[in-house]
Each structure stands twice: as C-alpha cells, then as structure tokens.
C-alpha cells in the first residue's frame, strides 16, 4: 500500500516539476512547483517525518513560494518576459547533459549493493526530535538563527529604496 502511494506521489511530483520548468510564465511555474512540493511533503509523511512534512508545506510552499510570487508580481514583468527560443536549441544540450548525468547516477546507484536495502517508515517522537535538535545540534541552531538575521538585514539593505535621479539609469 505504502509502496503504491509512494510511486503515485513520485510520478505526481515529477510531472509537476517537469511542467514547472517548461512554463514561460513564472507565476505558472511557481504554482506547479507548489504542487510538486505538496507531493514531496506527502512522501515525507509517508517516510515517517510528519514534522518535516509540515514544515515543507508551511515554510517552503507557504513562505518561500509566496515570496517568489510577491517578487514576480512586484517586478511587473510582461507575461512573456523571456523569449522562449526554438525548443531544441534551448533544451537540446541540457537534455543531453541531463541524460548523461542520469545514466551515470543510475549506474552508480545500481552498482552499490547497500542501496538495494529497503526503507521503512521511521517516526521520531517529538521528544527524540527535540533532543537531537536542541541538544546535539544546538550550535547549528544558533548558527542558522544568525544566518537568518544576516539574511534579513541583507535583504533589507539590498532592496532598500534608492531615490531615482535622472532618466532611470541610477548607477551604471
């Protein structure tokens, strides 16, 4: 049962991602990505990490993707901002590269005997989770919080409002 669910969710995620990367309108791409993220969150839950699944939805799909949407809206881009080039010219080399890489990866994975092991859902109780997070990785938590502070300050600084002068090229 779980296996089937897994495969269904996997296909859903792959399809959504595929559609995401081929859209010309960034808003459409973001929506498809949200879809993919939902599928991934469900896979996480399946693998026994409800907390991670919840955070995937709340933070990733909820905050980060919304941020993307805000920025896209703010920039007032024309719908077809980027000229999609003739299909094969744009995607050709990338496809070749990706297939080559995929081939290499699959061969590597298939050749590794340890990878054939089965995965079972592992649920960590909040207590265990909390222990690990705040006791074992306490330092990492602190560092990450610093980093969030830097990010906030940085984003604020980079995006600050600069008075326009002249025609529109402020600093060249």
């Amino acid at each position: 049962m779980d296996s089937i669910l897994f495969y269904i969710l996997a296909i859903a995620a792959l399809a959504a991602t595929l559609l995401c990367i081929t859209r010309s309108n960034p808003v459409h791409a973001v929506i498809y990505l949200v879809n993919a993220l939902f599928s991934l969150a469900l896979i996480f839950y399946l693998l026994g990490a409800p907390l991670v699944a919840a955070w995937e939805v709340i933070i990733y799909a909820g905050a980060i993707m919304v941020l993307f949407l805000f920025i896209i809206m703010m920039l007032e881009l024309a719908p077809a901002e980027e000229r999609p080039g003739p299909g094969w010219r744009r995607w050709g080399p990338v496809l070749v590269l990706s297939l080559v890489l995929l081939g290499c990866t699959i061969l590597l994975i298939a050749g590794d005997p340890g990878a054939a092991q089965g995965v079972t859902s592992y649920y960590a109780s909040p207590r265990v989770f909390g222990y690990a997070l705040f006791k074992k990785y306490a330092l990492a938590v602190e560092v990450v919080s610093f980093q969030l502070l830097f990010a906030a300050v940085g984003a604020f600084y980079v995006g600050r409002h600069r008075p326009k002068r002249g025609t529109g090229k402020e600093e060249q």
Partner: peptide
C-alpha cells in the same frame, strides 16, 4: 518495507 533505497535515490 516501503520501497528500496535505490528507488528513492533515483
């Protein structure tokens, strides 16, 4: 067992 690790990796 839900699925082999190799599938997840692929």
């Amino acid at each position: 067992m839900i699925v082999p690790m190799s599938h997840i990796l692929i």
